[in-house]
Simulated scan of single mutants.
Amino acid sequence: MPEFVGTPSGEGRRFAVVASRFNETITQKLAEGAVDAFTRHGAAFDDVDVIWVPGAWELPAAVRHVLASGRYDAAVAIGAVVRGETPHFDIVAGEAARGVADAGAEYDVPVTLGLLTTDDMAQAEARAGGAHGNKGWDAAMAAMEMADLFAMLDSAAEAEGELAGGDEDAG
């Protein structure tokens, strides 16, 4: 039984970091963490594009546009939604996550979610380079692993198709 496991390798691949400007003191750190992860794992700095959008609500549309270009092996959506006094938090966070997931499924390109959903700014800061690490870095690592996994699966399917095609030609 074949097993496939991707590795976080950015070498020879292009990545998009789509980041929300809302709560920019947090999202800037998350975006920097993602870019750092990509470049430390072999991606050329010029092969990582950072695309800024106004807020988390706009992440799905921008991710969809980025994936439609066909330029990227994977994308990371970065944002920070901090709970307030109204249900706005639940709507924005949930719909942003759903929209980003839908975009990845529609274009069959890995998209990872570095969207923080926290109760307060202290929790967000802890996840943007603080005590809980940098979730932008984590999302980039997952994006590289998924891009590598997709490439392996595509190669295996291609090889399988070539073998099947070769058998038919021989007969």
Rank of each mutant, 00 (worst) to 15 (best):
G94H: 04
A122K: 12
Q28S: 14
F22T: 00
T39I: 14
V63K: 02
D47C: 09
V81M: 09
D108I: 09
T118N: 03
A16S: 01
V82M: 08
D119K: 03
A62R: 12
F89K: 06
S69A: 02
I78C: 02
R14T: 14
L59A: 12
A142W: 10
A68V: 05
M144F: 10
N134S: 11
A126V: 03
M141H: 09
D49V: 06
L149Y: 13
A31D: 04
T86M: 13
D90A: 03
A126R: 06
V50D: 09
A61K: 01
F22C: 00
F89T: 04
H132V: 07
I78E: 01
V81A: 08
A96K: 02
G55Y: 04
D102E: 15
V100R: 11
R13V: 04
A101I: 15
V100K: 07
D119L: 12
G55M: 03
L115M: 10
T117W: 04
A74I: 08
G104M: 14
P60R: 11
A74E: 10
D148F: 00
V35T: 09
V48H: 00
G133L: 08
T117I: 03
R98Y: 03
G130F: 05
T25L: 13
F150E: 09
Q28F: 07
A68L: 11
T112A: 06
E85S: 12
H88F: 00
Y107E: 09
I91G: 05
L113S: 15
H41M: 08
T86C: 09
L59F: 12
M121E: 12
N134H: 06
D49F: 05
A131E: 02
A37M: 13
S69C: 01
P60S: 11
L59H: 11
D36L: 10
F22V: 00
A56F: 02
W137N: 01
D119A: 13
D46A: 13
V48F: 00
D119C: 02
E145W: 11
R40N: 11
G104I: 06
I91Y: 15
R13N: 02
